[in-house]
């Protein structure tokens, strides 16, 4: 049997104030490991402390897949997203999602950043938050607008990464149609306000901003349940 961490905090952040947050430490017979402050990290997210603990199992797996330093590097993120180390390293959407998860912009995703970013994709998170995240995602050059050439670039990237076969004329038509619908003031770019209206009128465009997996985290990671039972026995 391997080294199992001892967890001391089991309460939901919804039942405790932030000031009561207790740093979590872990000890095992093999090594001493500093665990994140699960309670503080869960606060302000739709996740319970138990769910954050379960997601820590996932985080550890991803963050130690290539460089074993407990941080998710872009290469590790790509491996997790595309399920293959041989897949090309460049991917427009993968790179954009990584950059948004890397909130400090220091080239790695820390556990707190991982949880806060994933919380946007929780099915219970308000649509407004999902729309705001999606806007930042699609605003490729971070100009505060989704521009026509950015949208075309995304469509072409999607076609490149999928089996969809669409002619260049059809791509132009798709982009034109989208701007007809979303660019209300006809200035050739979609601003945040136009985006908010557009996503309210067309909520299906935010479908990729919800991950049903996040509703049932502890069922997906049964190893966490084993850890917890050991902890409570302690």
């Amino acid at each position: 049997m391997g080294c199992l961490p001892t967890k001391h905090v089991r309460d939901s952040p919804r039942s405790l104030g932030v000031h009561e947050a207790v740093a979590v430490s872990a000890e095992s017979s093999c090594e001493k490991v500093d665990l994140p402050d699960f309670l503080n990290i869960a606060t302000g997210t739709p996740f319970t402390v138990s769910e954050v603990e379960a997601l820590y199992d996932l985080f550890r797996k991803i963050s130690n897949s290539v460089i074993k330093d407990g941080l998710i590097h872009k290469e590790e993120f790509h491996v997790a997203l595309f399920r293959s180390k041989s897949k090309k390293k460049q991917n427009l959407f993968g790179d954009r999602v990584f950059d948004l998860f890397d909130q400090k912009g220091n080239g790695v995703i820390e556990f707190g950043e991982f949880i806060r970013s994933l919380s946007v994709f929780h099915p219970d998170t308000p649509e407004e938050q999902k729309a705001a995240f999606a806007f930042r995602l699609y605003d490729l050059r971070q100009t505060g607008f989704i521009e026509r050439h950015e949208l075309k670039e995304m469509v072409l990237a999607l076609l490149d990464e999928s089996n969809l076969d669409i002619t260049s004329d059809a791509v132009e038509m798709i982009v034109d149609t989208t701007f007809d619908q979303a660019d209300v003031n006809r200035d050739g770019r979609i601003d945040q306000e136009e985006w908010n209206v557009f996503t309210k009128d067309n909520p299906y465009v935010l479908r990729n901003m919800s991950l049903p997996y996040l509703k049932d985290i502890t069922m997906i990671f049964p190893s966490f349940v084993i850890h917890s039972e050991v902890s409570e026995a302690d």
């Binding site: 996932l58 897949s65 949208l151 995304m154 999607l158 465009v205 935010l206 990729n208």
Partner: peptide, 25 residues
């Protein structure tokens, strides 16, 4: 028909983000 969709619908429907894969590692 993809050509009749708007671009964001196309991206959304085709799992452009691949985040589901995080949970299948």
């Amino acid at each position: 028909q993809p050509a009749s969709m708007n671009a964001f619908e196309l991206i959304s429907l085709n799992r452009g983000l691949n985040l589901d894969n995080l949970f299948e590692t």
